[in-house]
């Protein structure tokens, strides 16, 4: 019994990481209806940038965030203004195919720069530290990941609904023309949204890199996890995304418990079941 409680707790904590993968995806879709196929590869890029930073400056991965977060945000802004803004429009093909091309470029650039060898970020003692309560041992790093995920979602929620920046995001999302007339430059607003999304991605990448080893090819899988969390949670709802991540994480750990080969499959099946019974996700945004 306690064993299964442990599995569910682990899955929930893993869900935090998936929610972090998903948050950027969800944010971008919410503001500009863009689905970024390269999102997973950008997460991996963040992990590699973290790796280079820790090695060059000889610092802890968390400290590396001071470098990686602004770097990723800058990359996001430049990418959006330089390339992605030109793809936005009524046709869904250009953004899809351009981000797909970007994904292949990123993967191969990482392969060229860092080789295919698996890498890992060295988090030190925190990786093995654990807390135990009532016969249940919980890793400090997974717990921290989850707490960070909750904090990030709360922070994004606050930015979205309580700040002038978030007001701009929502206005542009509602009606680009009228937002422009109010003096908002949508190209800039979209750039800021991508910058914010990739700043979150930076955190996701660093936490991923401390938790497991990574190589240039794993981006696609991370994109899929994030995407599944978004759809399970319901499009447009940030807290729903967290719930979606948790459901996915729990499904995976339960699957893994039954048979290690079933971990990923169980997650996909949970996603397909939700798609079959609640196509709009569990917590779709209610328009007011």
């Amino acid at each position: 019994m306690i064993e299964w409680v442990g599995v569910i707790v682990q899955g929930t904590l893993l869900g935090g990481l998936y929610a972090l993968f998903a948050a950027g995806l969800s944010l971008i879709f919410g503001v500009m209806r863009l689905v970024n196929i390269a999102h997973g590869d950008l997460i991996v890029l963040a992990a590699y940038l973290g790796l280079s930073t820790t090695m060059m400056l000889d610092v802890h991965p968390f400290v590396a965030l001071i470098v990686v977060m602004p770097l990723m945000a800058g990359i996001g802004y430049a990418l959006q203004r330089g390339v992605l803004n030109q793809t936005l429009g009524p046709d869904i093909l250009p953004p899809l195919l351009v981000t797909f091309g970007l994904s292949v470029i990123l993967q191969n650039a990482l392969l060229e720069g860092y080789t295919a060898d698996p890498q890992k970020l060295n988090g030190g003692a925190i990786e093995t530290a654990s807390l135990s309560a009532g016969g249940l041992a919980v890793g400090v790093l997974p717990l921290l990941t989850f707490v960070v995920a909750v904090a990030m979602i709360a922070c994004l929620q606050w930015i979205f609904y309580k700040t002038s920046l978030g007001r701009g995001f929502r206005a542009v999302s509602d009606n680009q023309d009228i937002a422009q007339i109010m003096g908002l430059n949508k190209a800039h607003v979209f750039g800021l949204a991508m910058a914010l999304a990739l700043a979150v991605t930076a955190i996701a990448g660093i936490l991923l890199g401390m938790r497991t080893s990574f190589d240039p090819a794993i981006g696609g899988g991370r994109l899929i996890f994030g995407f599944e969390a978004v759809i399970i949670g319901g499009l447009g709802s940030l807290w729903g995304t967290l719930a979606g991540g948790v459901i996915l994480g729990v499904a995976q750990t339960i699957g893994a418990k039954i048979d290690p080969g079933w971990q990923l499959l169980a997650g996909h099946i949970a996603f397909l079941v939700v798609l079959a019974v609640r196509p709009n996700g569990l917590f779709p945004r209610v328009e007011h």
Binding site: S164, R167, G168, R170, A171, S173, D174, N175, I178, A179, M182, G183, L184, E287, H288
Partner: peptide, 16 residues
């Protein structure tokens, strides 16, 4: 803007 409140719509107008 449907996702903005009355006040937020006005605030956005003052953005310039």
């Amino acid at each position: 803007f449907p996702s903005l409140s009355v006040e937020e719509n006005l605030l956005l107008g003052g953005k310039v």
